[in-house]
Amino acid sequence: MTRPPPPGHPVTASVLITDPQGRLLVVRPAKPDAPWALPGGAVELGESPLDAARREVREELGLILDVQTHDLFAVEWLQATRPDRRDRLAFIFAGPQLIPADHDRITLQYEEIDAWRWEPPTSALQILHPRIAARIVGPLQYPRPTTYLETRTQERTL
């Protein structure tokens, strides 16, 4: 018998990092056949999405970034796709622009990430997971509005 998942929403946080040419930093998770992603991951119990975004970048890339609350880029609510899953929230923060000297400071955590690279936005959107790519709308630099999305798998009556 399948149990319903516990209440609450799992939360993830990612960081959109660019370079002076406007390319995006993408990472390849160390899982077979995993699509490229943005640096980030799950928000831990008692941790804010902003703190999780900073921690994940520090763990995955070895970088300490000055990401702030006003750097919120997008939030998406995703409806569960199966009865054993929960709806979830995904946050993306816009990180600072990295300069070439910052590249030498990147140190991968190979248990989680096995590669990183710069991609122009159009090709990055092609190799990122489609749900992640869908969150990256509008200008990547200031000024830009924050985007809020909802992904529904079926209509719910309220």
Rank of each mutant, 00 (worst) to 15 (best):
residue 5 P to A: 10
residue 5 P to R: 09
residue 6 P to Y: 08
residue 7 P to K: 11
residue 8 G to F: 11
residue 8 G to P: 13
residue 10 P to W: 12
residue 14 S to Q: 10
residue 18 T to M: 12
residue 18 T to Q: 13
residue 19 D to Y: 09
residue 20 P to K: 09
residue 24 L to N: 04
residue 25 L to C: 10
residue 29 P to K: 12
residue 29 P to C: 05
residue 30 A to W: 08
residue 30 A to V: 02
residue 30 A to Q: 06
residue 32 P to G: 12
residue 33 D to Y: 09
residue 33 D to E: 15
residue 36 W to G: 11
residue 40 G to T: 11
residue 41 G to P: 04
residue 42 A to D: 03
residue 44 E to Y: 05
residue 44 E to R: 05
residue 46 G to W: 01
residue 46 G to M: 08
residue 46 G to E: 02
residue 46 G to Q: 02
residue 46 G to F: 03
residue 47 E to N: 02
residue 47 E to R: 01
residue 48 S to P: 01
residue 50 L to T: 01
residue 51 D to E: 15
residue 51 D to R: 03
residue 53 A to M: 05
residue 53 A to L: 03
residue 53 A to Q: 04
residue 54 R to K: 15
residue 58 R to Q: 13
residue 60 E to T: 07
residue 62 G to Y: 11
residue 63 L to E: 14
residue 64 I to Q: 13
residue 69 T to K: 07
residue 71 D to M: 06
residue 72 L to C: 13
residue 73 F to D: 04
residue 76 E to D: 01
residue 77 W to N: 00
residue 78 L to H: 11
residue 78 L to G: 12
residue 79 Q to W: 09
residue 80 A to E: 07
residue 80 A to T: 00
residue 81 T to R: 14
residue 81 T to I: 03
residue 84 D to V: 09
residue 86 R to V: 00
residue 88 R to S: 08
residue 90 A to S: 10
residue 92 I to W: 00
residue 94 A to R: 15
residue 96 P to W: 04
residue 97 Q to V: 11
residue 97 Q to A: 08
residue 97 Q to S: 12
residue 98 L to E: 00
residue 99 I to L: 09
residue 99 I to Q: 10
residue 99 I to W: 00
residue 100 P to V: 09
residue 101 A to M: 02
residue 101 A to P: 00
residue 106 I to K: 09
residue 107 T to C: 10
residue 108 L to M: 12
residue 108 L to G: 06
residue 111 E to P: 00
residue 111 E to L: 06
residue 113 I to P: 03
residue 116 W to K: 01
residue 119 E to H: 10
residue 119 E to A: 12
residue 121 P to C: 09
residue 121 P to L: 14
residue 122 T to Y: 02
residue 122 T to E: 10
residue 122 T to I: 12
residue 123 S to V: 14
residue 123 S to N: 14
residue 126 Q to P: 00
residue 127 I to V: 15
residue 131 R to F: 07
residue 131 R to A: 09
residue 131 R to D: 07
residue 134 A to T: 04
residue 135 R to H: 07
residue 135 R to M: 15
residue 137 V to F: 04
residue 140 L to D: 02
residue 140 L to H: 06
residue 142 Y to T: 10
residue 144 R to S: 04
residue 144 R to E: 07
residue 144 R to T: 03
residue 146 T to W: 04
residue 146 T to S: 09
residue 147 T to S: 15
residue 148 Y to L: 14
residue 148 Y to I: 14
residue 148 Y to D: 06
